[in-house]
Write a protein that binds this DNA or RNA. Structure first.
Length: 220
DNA sequence: GACCAGGCACATC
DNA sequence: GATGTGCATGGT
């Protein structure tokens, strides 16, 4: 079985076992974007607490976030960790949208995807994972998100070598799957799910993994 | 108390 | 190019 087929059958197997995840609908594009920044190297539950604080203050708004100062913002997003850094990241992102898209997320997300990705990567504090998360989850654009779970689950199942780069891994998914944001969303969510349950960082390779995937026989 | 959690930038060799 | 470090809270 070639690489693309493995990527496809792995998805089918995960989907069969865990079903649709319906992940991260988020109530708005802006909320998804804030979540993408706030969850950097942080559990989603902590990022969620920070989002709740912003909601309480009615701050999920381009205008409000443009006006608030970074220190006050930092205080509100404290539970997400790295709060001083993240407050600056959010402010820089807002400035980017104001400057380039007249403060309109819709205008931002409806332009050329490749150009937008480059622009997002130009913002200090937004790297490839965060940029792609914004494109996929806020923009519903067919861009595959690679994260720590993706690396771990795929390498432990022998689907890619350990040293695979972000770009290489993304290319593998992009070239193997239909270019569909819904599938990319589901697949990524399923990888996080199985990663959390059966592919923990310290545990020996895939102890108790229900997938029982053997890369040599490619039995999936 | 150590370790982990849906990263990223920057310094140094 | 690889490797190390700061950023920080909250759960296990």
């Amino acid at each position: 079985m070639n690489k693309s087929k493995r990527i496809n059958s792995f998805y089918k197997e995960l989907y069969k076992r865990y079903g649709p995840q319906g992940w991260w609908p988020g109530h708005s594009a802006l909320e998804c974007i804030l979540g993408a920044i706030l969850t950097q190297n942080t559990s989603w539950t902590n990022a969620e607490k920070a989002i709740e604080n912003l909601k309480k203050e009615n701050l999920i708004s381009m205008d409000k976030l443009a006006l608030i100062n970074a220190d006050e913002l930092a205080g509100l997003i404290r539970p997400s960790g790295y709060y001083n850094q993240k407050a600056l990241k959010i402010k820089r992102f807002i400035s980017f949208v104001v400057k380039n898209y007249g403060a309109s997320l819709e205008r931002m997300l409806n332009g050329d995807t490749y150009e937008l990705r480059k622009g997002l990567l130009g913002i200090k504090g937004i790297g490839p994972e965060t940029a792609d998360t914004i494109l996929l989850y806020a923009g519903r654009l067919p861009v595959f998100v690679i994260d720590a779970y993706t690396y771990r689950v795929l390498s432990r199942h022998g689907l890619v070598p350990e040293e695979t780069t972000y770009g290489e891994m993304q290319e593998l998914f992009t070239d193997s799957l239909p270019k569909d944001a819904v599938i990319f969303n589901e697949y990524h969510a399923l990888l996080v799910k199985v990663g959390k349950e059966h592919c923990k960082k310290r545990a020996p390779a895939c102890e108790g993994c229900p997938l029982n995937y053997d890369p040599h026989t490619a039995s999936l």
